[in-house]
Design a protein around this nucleic acid. Structure first.
Lengths: 111, 111
DNA sequence: GCAAGGTACCTTGCGCGGCAAGGTACCTGG
DNA sequence: CCAGGTACCTTGCCGCGCAAGGTACCTTGC
């Protein structure tokens, strides 16, 4: 891995969940697909993280899922946002903006 | 509290530690003082979080501490950055910028 | 002179979420 | 036919923030 390993791991907490919701905004996606995108963005370190997360999102009814056959390979479970999911995402965007603002300010204060 | 309670709590993970380091940049501070500043900024919910954190920072030699008497009230433990602390802070600034950038981008993608 | 309340430190028990490792099954390509 | 990519999932662990609770100092007011 690049830099800031341990630090990154902590940063992802709580963010990853909402990043998944954000990715679902533009249409339904399946897990393995999300894994590669989030890993690429440096927001996910292990597959083993995402599937339990998706289960939680289903349990909390922020997403709903449907099995579809793949043109090649095993079947995929596709996820889509529910209304609650969209609401949660909007709410998080505010929290994030505010939070990130505070942190930026604090980190620069006398840099 | 305002909004996004639970979300906020998760967001603070790993950030708080480095915010403390950032606050020490401009000179030594004592715990109770940090508590009020960080609480004010919405980055800390409970006193009980900070003291163990400060112990960790001491253990990892990112800060050093010295007891000083207070003009009024019980003695205070003042904390100051070590060289390692300054380095950790610099390193975190990069991680944070990169991380926050990724998140911002992802959250806006099709907002 | 003593109780009340602010200052200042610390500890304990808990829960949650990300990580690593491991496991199953499907399907294609050599 | 089997090696390897696709795609799903589970289990055990660890670290950090939180809430609640605890000690002691010092001032203020009655």
């Amino acid at each position: 891995m690049t830099t800031g390993d341990a630090a990154r791991t902590q940063l992802r907490r709580g963010v990853l969940e909402h990043c998944v919701l954000a990715l679902l905004q533009s249409g339904e996606r399946y897990g393995y697909d999300l894994v590669s995108e989030l890993s690429g963005a440096g927001l996910l370190a292990s597959e083993g993280t995402l599937y339990p997360l998706l289960s939680r999102l289903r349990r909390d009814e922020l997403v709903e899922s449907a099995w579809r056959e793949s043109p090649s390979g095993p079947p995929r479970r596709y996820y889509a946002l529910t209304d609650s999911g969209r609401a949660a995402l909007d709410s998080f965007r505010h929290s994030w903006a505010q939070f990130a603002g505070s942190v930026d300010q604090l980190l620069q204060k006398g840099a």
